[in-house]
Design a binder for these strands. Structure first.
Lengths: 212, 212
DNA sequence: ATCGAACCGTACGGTACGGTACAAATTCGG
DNA sequence: CCGAATTTGTACCGTACCGTACGGTTCGAT
């Protein structure tokens, strides 16, 4: 599956297994109680590690937060293109699958928690977290989407000038204002829980705009 | 102008002029340095008031934050419908104007700062700020948009089943992922600064989906 | 068995900030 | 002009948390 979350199927080169376990615990604290719930003492207590180790591994609290974001981003993989996208129908199914996975990632509680964290820290001097999330989150997805759309254009299924612009339209059609509402603490409406239908409707409208 | 910001043309019944001045100062601190820059001592110093007055007026720090959000929301008015929207062309111009103003509000630094604040506080128990921003911000705009779209449908310019759904599509076409990128600290691309063109393009695509 | 490295748990200093208390100053109605 | 109420400026308290230090423990290597 594209965009799927792998549970460390093999060792992540960036962090040791022990560190990954601690970061996983930090993610849990973040999802449960937000940024202020992620204190160095609290994490040490919950993860059964010492504060000294935290500071040895991550430098300071900001480094810890950056490590959490980087760790989660490292779990989202983009396996190479699904191979033979021969006919029109399977290509459209690929678009549907992409849109569905996009919604699944964006609306997941982990993504919501990390977005809240990064947005809350976006007033810092350098704003490492926001840049990190944009770089290793949105830009990756955008690249994946562009290559998919370019393939569709090359085969004559789609028609557009700028792939980035086309992707942004697809994003807007699929996400609408649901993401910001979730970030603000609103509950998703019932029909918005059916990601498949939402994605299919978005792709349908996308074809009405960019289909041949 | 719809959605225009009025500078307290006449006394806001909710806050005294002195309190409004202090809240204005708080807004400035928020826009400049984010939530952590808005301390009670700092606000008292900058606004030339005492902490005791702050607590007397707003109860506690959370009350102060809520007051800031409520105050800013009270400045955004939705004057009654522009009156005679007779022909097709003027109606479409109204849609363009609405979309432009929507982008102008959402991408303004004040809105960005308040959204960041509310999102950062959305893990609290009751989440007053997020509810407040949703209630007095997004829902108001949504209502305005729905009435506008309903009028278009009634006159035969548009065709859709659910006005709320149609509005969300218009929102997605206009905003795309720019809002979340701004919240994360990304800079808007050059072409995204031309709100008029962006809005016009969005309305053009909206007509392709819902026009008659 | 011994050494050394990494790690755990805890305790502690320093600091920032929310909230309160109080005397001096200012405003304002009568 | 006067007195009451409000506001200001400052000092202060308690708390929460970051960052560090240190004693004790586990565990693999030699």
């Amino acid at each position: 599956m594209s965009l799927a979350v792998h549970e460390s199927e093999y060792t992540n080169t960036e962090f040791t297994p022990r560190q990954q376990a601690v970061l996983e615990c930090a993610l849990g604290l973040l999802v449960a109680g937000g940024e202020k719930a992620l204190t160095t003492a609290g994490l040490a207590r919950n993860a059964n590690c010492s504060k000294e180790s935290l500071y040895k591994w991550f430098g300071d609290r900001d480094g810890l937060l950056a490590a959490v974001v980087a760790y989660q981003a490292s779990k989202v993989h983009f396996p190479p293109e699904g191979g033979a996208t021969a006919d029109t129908e399977t290509f459209r199914q690929h678009l549907n699958a992409f849109a569905t996975e996009l919604l699944a990632v964006l609306f997941g509680e982990t993504s919501v928690a990390l977005n809240r964290l990064s947005i809350g820290q976006s007033n810092k001097d350098d704003n490492r977290l926001g840049q990190l999330l944009l770089q290793r989150g949105k830009y990756m997805i955008s690249a994946k989407a562009r290559s998919l759309l370019e393939a569709g254009r090359h085969r004559g299924y789609l028609k557009f000038d700028d792939a980035e612009e086309a992707y942004q339209v697809l994003y807007g059609l699929a996400v609408r204002d649901v993401h910001i509402r979730l970030l603000l603490g609103d509950k998703a409406r019932p029909e918005e829980h059916d990601l498949e239908s939402q994605a299919e409707l978005a792709v349908q409208r996308f074809y009405k705009l960019f289909g041949t």
